[in-house]
Amino acid sequence: MMLDGLYQEIILDHYKNPHGRGLRDPFDGEAHHVNPTCGDEITVRVTSDLTDISYDGLGCSISQASASVLHELVQGKDPAAAAEIHHAFVELMQSRGQIEPDEEVLGDGIAFAGVAKFPARVKCALLPWMAFKDAAARAGVDVGASPEVKA
């Protein structure tokens, strides 16, 4: 089936066994994002030193797995590294499948390369990352100007 590119084993694994799920205290910044077309929601909390990134939400396998990968990749990183990862992930999702992702930077995130070919699902993958960016900003952490996300 042509779905193999979308539902990579890694994505399904993160979906079924999410890392770091559940909202935790203490935190310094929180953001709640909604995907208005499908109603999916996520809340992300971060501490100002990024030692904890916690989240909870309702959503499809892509958005939930993406949150799990975000947690795994970014938690504990310094702001510059977090910004680099964030930028790379957003850029990958907007590439329509034209970019070869760098596993050094994106780790399990490279499994999302296939999602970029399904325009209707890109927003799902980006939902936790956009919420993270806002939560980080509220905690005083700037993860940089990521490429603008168009609906």
Partner: peptide, 19 residues
């Protein structure tokens, strides 16, 4: 999740709405 249901169905040519 309905998104995932709709995606698998679409791969089989079955067009339903999700959301």
């Amino acid at each position: 999740h309905p998104h995932d249901v709709g995606q698998v169905l679409d791969a089989l040519g079955v067009e339903v709405r999700v959301g």
